[in-house]
């Protein structure tokens, strides 16, 4: 899908994505020549179709995880189906009670992967305490929609 600024006959650049709610996916494109911006709003069905491809509009910050699509999308996976690699050097990283509670709300099937991603994010940035705010930041920085 490409967005063309008709006046400038120029391809608009992807600039931002959002999940504003209701399963809507919003992608913002802007024209580098005239500055015009448009937001493409995908309904939940279209959002799911894109998610089903295993791609992220705008590209990935975080590399695709092994079996990421299955783990994110399967509704009734076995809680202990996967075991994540042992953390490299995460001894100092702690989770606040709020963050722990939020993690507990993630389906068990995918929880191990999500926990590792947040832990890696914190470790790479020298963050010793994972809080809901850190999780929000990681979601935004890494494009973890749906995690």
């Amino acid at each position: 899908m490409k967005f063309l600024c008709i006046g400038c006959d120029t391809v608009m650049d992807f600039t931002e994505r959002q999940l504003p709610g209701d399963g809507t996916f919003a992608a913002v494109f802007s024209c580098a020549r005239c500055g015009r911006e448009v937001a493409m709003l995908a309904n939940p069905m279209e959002t799911q179709l894109v998610a089903s491809l295993g791609v992220r509009i705008g590209g990935r910050t975080l590399a695709e995880q092994p079996m990421e699509l299955v783990r994110q999308q399967l509704a009734e996976g076995r809680d202990d189906a996967f075991v994540e690699p042992a953390p490299a050097s995460r001894g100092a990283i702690r989770w606040s009670d709020d963050a722990r509670q939020r993690l507990a709300n993630v389906p068990g099937f995918v929880r191990g992967m999500v926990k590792r991603i947040y832990s890696d994010y914190a470790a790479e940035r020298g963050i010793s305490l994972i809080t809901p705010e850190v999780m929000d930041r990681a979601r935004a920085d890494l494009g973890l929609e749906g995690m």
């Binding site: 992807f14 894109v50 791609v55 992220r56 509009i57 705008g58 590209g59």
Partner: peptide, 9 residues
């Protein structure tokens, strides 16, 4: 476009 979908596929 910067959407980078074909590249990911």
């Amino acid at each position: 476009t910067g959407a980078k979908v074909p590249e990911q596929v």
